[in-house]
């Protein structure tokens, strides 16, 4: 196993295996930004190959890309770091289509990438603010389970919110 050429310290590399068999070689410091991987490393110690049966390669790759960027940015202790991260986060979520966004969100949630979940939920929230109830049901594939009349009652009570 080769050590990273850009840093002088030898960092341990982990092998992450997605549900579809795709593997990623990542530095431990990057992968442990994800709470789930951090736990596995701490509990299982020397294991270098980690199988992640609930995430497929495409989304695991995206999650890791985000981790890498944040790990790199955080190594230079610049003041403008927060700004760089914010700018990069904005770029990262800007062009995600709905389907990718949801899968990525589920992957981040499964891997306990708290900061990434925050970023993605904020993105979803910004997309659904001001939407109609029917649009929300369609977006989230939700079927109304109210009895006839119940929904009208809630609408009447909160009629201002529908203006």
């Amino acid at each position: 196993m080769s050590s990273s050429s850009t840093t002088t310290t030898t960092t341990r590399l982990l092998m992450l295996k997605a549900s579809d068999g795709v593997t990623f070689e990542v530095e431990e410091a990057v992968a442990t930004k994800l709470g789930a991987i951090n736990n596995m490393v701490e509990e299982e110690g020397s294991e270098d190959l980690i199988c992640l049966p609930n995430v497929n390669g495409k989304f695991l790759g995206m999650v890791l890309e985000w981790c890498k960027k944040h790990a790199n940015n955080n190594t230079n202790s610049d003041k403008g770091n927060d700004e760089v991260n914010k700018w990069w986060d904005k770029e990262f979520v800007m062009d995600l289509d709905q389907n990718t966004l949801y899968h990525l969100l589920m992957a981040a949630d499964y891997l306990s990438g708290t900061e990434l979940v925050d970023l993605l939920t904020e993105k979803v929230a910004s997309m659904i603010r001001g939407k109609k109830v029917e649009e929300i049901r369609e977006t989230f594939k939700i079927k109304s389970d109210f009895l006839p009349g119940q929904e009208e009652e809630i609408r009447k009570k909160n009629s201002w919110a529908f203006e």
Binding site: V117, D118, A125, V133, R137, F146, N158
Partner: peptide
């Protein structure tokens, strides 16, 4: 838990409306 996190980030008016989405 993800749905919750999304709802927590919504504005009051949207939330009042989204009470109609489901029980």
């Amino acid at each position: 838990d993800v749905t919750l996190e999304i709802l927590l980030r919504l504005d009051p008016k949207s939330l009042m409306r989204f009470k109609c989405v489901c029980k």
